[in-house]
């Protein structure tokens, strides 16, 4: 697969999510990547307003998170977070699935949770974060089916920040089982252009990364982790 930088950028969501992020960090990062036509930028809920303002003259979607990265929050809390996200300008919300229910084989709870979150999101896109890395192949398929049944049409493969990496085989599996029914956002451990292209070839629609500059020589080195004081990653 050959993509121009612009074509690749339009398949990338850049994530600037960390515990120690400040408004200053968000501004610095967005100024430095200004001009790259990313598909989306993902920020924590408190930074939606400022990010919406900084992105207003671009096509870049504003993405935020709910019950992320651990998926341990209740449906009621997720609904409240999604309502907040809508109010403050999010275009899409990455929502952690109830992992403990999924691992317990309780796919009905997973599905009901998705349904309530999707209803609360209205016209905003809900991407369910599945943590494929902790699931068996059978569980992966059942979780994706529960997500579709619940009304979401997109999944994120792993959340990152919990030590999981996305395997190309997982993307292939979901693509084979669900075809174009499900949008696949590949995330966690995808750092290079080669890795990104391989994921896209395997059937991923979108790539998540917090270090996009590593994917093109023409993109300025903007190391998010360095900006927030965690050293280079």
């Amino acid at each position: 697969m050959k993509l121009t930088d612009e074509e690749l950028a339009r398949r990338i969501i850049t994530s600037i999510i960390e515990a120690s992020v400040t408004e200053g960090h968000i501004k610095e990062f967005l100024e430095k990547v200004d001009g790259i036509p990313f598909y989306g930028i993902a920020v924590d809920l408190p930074f939606l307003s400022i990010s919406a303002d900084l992105l207003k003259n671009t096509d870049t979607k504003l993405v935020t998170i709910s019950s992320y990265p651990l998926g341990g929050m209740t449906t009621e809390v997720k609904v409240k977070q999604v309502e907040f996200a809508r109010k403050y300008g999010a275009d899409a919300i990455d929502v952690g699935i109830n992992c403990n229910a999924a691992k317990s084989g309780d796919f009905k709870t997973v599905e009901d949770d998705v349904r309530k979150v999707v209803n609360a999101a209205g016209d905003r896109e809900v991407v369910m974060c599945t943590q494929l890395g902790i699931l068996t192949n059978q569980e992966k398929i059942k979780v994706c089916q529960a997500i579709l049944n619940g009304g979401s049409k997109a999944i994120k493969t792993n959340s990152g920040m919990v030590g999981l990496h996305t395997d190309i085989e997982d993307v292939e599996l979901i693509k084979r089982e669900f075809g174009d029914e499900l949008i696949i956002e590949a995330s966690s451990g995808i750092r290079t252009r080669e890795q990104a292209l391989a994921m896209l070839e395997a059937g991923a629609d979108i790539i998540h990364t917090s270090t996009p500059f590593k994917m093109s020589e023409n993109w300025k080195e903007v190391n998010f982790y360095e900006i927030v004081g965690l050293g280079k990653k």
């Binding site: 960390e18 209740t74 409240k80």
Partner: peptide, 19 residues
């Protein structure tokens, strides 16, 4: 507010009451 704490106060309060 696990594990990053980066939630608006009103949502932490809601989560606390819900729990």
């Amino acid at each position: 507010a696990f594990h990053m704490g980066a939630y608006p106060t009103e949502l932490k309060v809601f989560e606390t009451k819900d729990a």
